[in-house]
Structures are given as structure tokens and as C-alpha cells.
Design a protein around this nucleic acid. Structure first.
Length: 423
RNA sequence: GGAGAGUUGGCAGAGUGGUCGAAUGCGGCGGUCUUGAAAACCGUUGACCUUCACGGGUCCGGGGGUUCGAAUCCCUCACUCUCCGCCA
């Protein structure tokens, strides 16, 4: 969530910036400012009352010790009435704070000044393009047909055992998955990331910390009996490692990487967008997370973009980088670049990575701070990106590399797969 | 799943219901001494809210209660450890 002080001191700017996300914040912002003012007044009143009570309690203690029972009893009278007052004040204060926080959480992150205005993905800006779009031979088919032909991915079997969107990978298909995971992890480790294997279930506090809760619980699978959620991305457990943590400035940059399965309910999705591997309920992803000093987080974003670009280059996939417009930007992000690879048989671009800077939006929610030179605790910046999500990479690899004789595996991956051709 | 013990500042570890935000040690930071370092000695050393400031308030695992007053008593939840059971 946004920092209260920022809202208080930059009302107009915040409203103007949120308009880029097509979000009319005027009402909420003004309400927050009003509640904040009320809160501070109440706080002062309560503090004064408590201070008086504390003082009296001390005096009563002294009276009892020196045997002045009568005086003590007298003082008790006053303190009892103060107690009623402070109780009602603190109840009142709690209500105000609860209200204020409720509204605060409703405000999305402020977009970076470079974010273009726009309503949908049509308004996103293609900022970079690399690689040659392959020309396929006549009988080329989309990946779901290749999956069946080579018996490497079985969607029907998944539907039988679990449901739609939970495929089985089989034989060379399973091996390819494992190869990609290892390839991505090794590349990240070589770039200075520390590998983690996170839990796949998270509690409510973690869900709140990264911004999935309270509003997006419908997108996560939920284990009701234990009040735990299946992770939609490793970002959640990995970033929450630092919930309520105060880092030293010398800890920056924190660079973590994790492979995990990801679970998404994807309620309401349908049609050709969800065909084959395009959209699944369970998929594998290698996620990179960085925590950085506020002054350096945009350099870090560039570094992460370069890392993802290099992965796609090594996989010999044509890709482009898209800067998301305000309307397409996620609730929590200040700036996001999507990476898309070209899927030759479907003749469309598929999103395989999303690299974002959340600035202090997540940090503020999870109280992730660092000590600056003056010794003051300040909010750190959090960033993350997929590096990479597997299914659409697999889709593009299968489609783009299909030949009459089989599917070619790019050179960089061969030492991981142990084969050069799917046949 | 059953029984018991515990959770205090960066760490270790005291704490009788009354001036405890909390002894002491270690660590960290600053200083004295030294050519420099170590040792020794002195000082300092949490977070949050509020205030221009002085100051005030909150926080001893989380939440609730008793009391004029709670780290200390009671309830509840979470977690950790030990033993038993089950188990990849």
C-alpha cells in the first residue's frame, strides 16, 4: 500500500498519477486524509488520558507503600473514571484506524512517470524486439497437436485425474520440463541469485504482504481446514521471507531465485486463449526476486530485463519486450515489462515473463525496511520477474522448432535434456 | 494425535503485580590509550505513533481479560523444544 505520508503531502499528485491507471482516487484519498486527521487528534487525546492514568497509578503505588490507604482510595476514584474515558477513546481510535487501513489497501500502486496511459493491452508499448520469426513448413501444427503426436504432454489424462488445466508431462516432455527448470536455475545462480525451495502453501499474512489478499483470494486455491493458500507464484513465499525484517544497507541487493509449481484458479477464463499450454491451473516457473535500495531499484529492473533477455536468446526464441500501459498494469506494480515469445504455429505472441518494480508498495504492506546511513529505518524496494514460466516457453519451443523428422532442441538446452530431438 | 516445558532487546540471559522499555554478559557503534592494532577503560546502542520542538503514548510471541497499576495473574491462539503414537 501507499505510504500515508505520501498521500498526506502529495494529494494532488497521487490522484493525478493514479488516473494513469484509470483509477479515480479522489474520493478515497480525501477520505483517508480526513480519517488520518481524525486519527491524530484522537491519538493525542488518548495519549494525554493515558499519561494522566499512568501518573496516578504511580502515585497510588507510592501511597500504599507509605501506608496512606485513604489517599490511595481517593486517587482510585479519579483513575477509574479515566479508565472509562480511555477505553472509549481507544475503541474509537481503533475504528478510525481500521477504516483508514481498509481504504488505504484499496489504493493501487502509483505508476512510474514513464507509464503510458491506456485502457488495455492494445495500448501497451513494444519497446524492443529481437530474433527472426521462423517460417514453418506446410504441415506445421500448434503445440497441442504436437504434444499428442509425440505423446509428451497428455491433457486428457490430466482432466481425468484432476481436471482441465492440469496436464501430465510424459517421457521426453517430462524430461524437457526438468531440463528447463535446471537451465533457468543455473543461469540465475550464475548471475548471483541465491536458490531457495519455498513452501507451496502460504498463510494469510503472506498473502497480504505481497498483495494477493484481501482482494484476490478468488484467484488462489484455498485449503480451508488449515487456512492456507496454494501459491500463485514463488514471489509470495520468497518476498515474504523479509516480512517484518530490517535489513542493513550493505545487504543490498538481495537476489533470490526459486523454482516452484504455481497454482491459479483462473476463474472465468475460456476460449482459444486457454487451449493447450496457454493457460493452466498448475504450471512450473522459476522466479527471480530482488530487494534493493530505493535509489537503485530501476537499475535493478534493467538488470533483470537483461537477464530474462539472455535466457530467451539462449533458447533461440524470437521475443519482444512490452511496457505495460496504465490500464494493464497490475494493482501492486509501478512499472512492468512483459516478455513475449512468438509462437509460430498459433501466429501470436505469448507472454512468458513479467518483470516488475513494486517500489515500496509491498514493503509497506509487509514492513520490509532497511537502515540508511543516518540509522533510520526506511522502506526498501521489491522487484520480481519470471525467469521463466515454463508452459508457453515449451509451447513456443515445440511449435517453432518442429520439422518433418521431429522437434529440435536448442543447443543451450541439450546438455540438460540429454537429447537433441523429440521424436 | 496424546502428555509436558517454553516464547523477554542483534544474540545469550535475569526479572518479587507498583517509577521496567526492562538487570547482566556478548556483539555493534563512538572515544581514551597506542606508530597501528589488540587488551583495558569510558560512553553509546530497538521499533512504532504523535509533536516545529520539549515532551507524551504504544510494544516483553499474537489476541482478549482481571487490577488504580501486568513482562509478572487468568483465558485463548500460534510457534518452539522433550517424550509417546503414527509415518515418507
Amino acid at each position: 500500500m501507499l505510504e500515508l505520508q505520501r498521500i498526506r503531502e502529495n494529494r494532488d499528485t497521487v490522484i493525478k498519477q493514479l488516473a494513469v491507471k484509470n483509477f479515480d482516487a479522489t474520493e478515497i484519498v480525501d477520505e483517508i486524509i480526513a480519517l488520518d486527521k481524525e486519527r491524530r487528534a484522537k491519538q493525542k487525546e488518548l495519549d494525554d488520558t493515558l499519561a494522566r492514568s499512568k501518573q496516578l497509578a504511580k502515585e497510588i503505588g507510592i501511597c500504599y507503600k507509605s501506608g496512606k490507604i485513604k489517599e490511595a482510595e481517593l486517587l482510585k476514584k479519579e483513575t477509574q473514571s479515566l479508565k472509562v474515558v480511555s477505553k472509549s477513546l481507544s475503541d474509537n481510535l481503533e475504528m478510525i484506524v481500521t477504516d483508514m487501513n481498509k481504504r488505504l489497501v484499496e489504493l493501487p500502486n502509483v505508476p512510474h512517470p514513464s507509464v503510458p496511459k491506456g485502457n488495455s493491452e492494445k495500448d501497451n508499448e513494444v519497446v524492443y524486439e529481437e530474433g527472426k520469426i521462423p517460417e514453418l513448413y506446410e504441415k506445421a501444427v500448434p503445440h497441442w497437436e504436437l504434444a499428442e503426436k509425440y505423446k509428451i504432454i497428455d491433457f486428457n489424462l490430466g482432466a481425468k485425474v484432476t481436471g482441465a488445466g492440469f496436464p501430465f508431462y510424459r517421457g521426453q516432455g517430462a524430461r524437457l520440463q526438468r531440463a528447463l527448470i535446471n537451465f533457468f536455475l543455473d543461469e540465475a545462480i550464475n548471475n548471483g541469485y541465491l536458490e531457495y525451495q519455498p513452501p507451496l502453501l502460504i498463510n494469510e499474512d503472506s498473502g497480504f504482504g505481497t498483495g494477493q489478499l484481501p482482494d484476490k483470494e478468488g484467484q488462489m486455491y484455498y485449503a480451508q481446514l488449515d487456512n492456507l493458500y496454494l501459491i500463485p507464484t514463488a514471489e509470495v513465499p520468497i518476498t515474504n521471507i523479509y516480512r517484518n525484517v530490517i535489513l542493513k544497507a550493505t545487504d543490498f541487493p538481495v537476489k533470490n531465485v526459486a523454482y516452484s509449481s504455481c497454482f491459479r484458479r483462473e476463474a472465468g477464463s475460456y476460449g482459444k486463449d486457454v487451449r493447450g499450454l496457454n493457460r493452466l491451473h498448475q504450471f512450473d516457473k522459476v522466479e527471480i526476486v530482488q530487494i534493493q535500495h530505493p535509489d537503485k531499484s530501476y537499475d535493478t529492473l534493467e538488470e533483470m530485463k537483461a537477464h530474462v533477455s539472455e535466457l530467451l536468446r539462449k533458447l533461440e526464441l524470437p521475443f519482444r519486450i512490452v511496457k505495460l500501459c496504465g490500464g494493464d498494469l497490475s494493482f501492486t506494480s509501478a512499472l512492468t515489462f512483459d516478455f513475449e515469445v512468438y509462437s509460430a504455429a498459433q501466429k501470436r505472441w505469448l507472454e512468458v515473463s513479467s518483470v516488475s518494480n513494486f517500489e515500496s508498495y509491498q514493503s509497506n504492506r509487509m514492513k520490509l525496511r532497511f537502515k540508511d546511513d543516518s540509522g533510520k529505518a526506511k522502506l526498501a524496494h521489491t522487484l520480481n520477474g519470471s525467469a521463466l514460466a515454463l508452459p508457453r516457453i515449451v509451447a513456443a519451443l515445440l511449435e517453432n522448432n518442429q520439422t518433418e523428422n521431429g522437434i529440435n532442441i536448442p543447443a543451450a538446452l541439450q546438455k540438460y535434456t540429454g537429447f537433441e530431438l523429440i521424436e
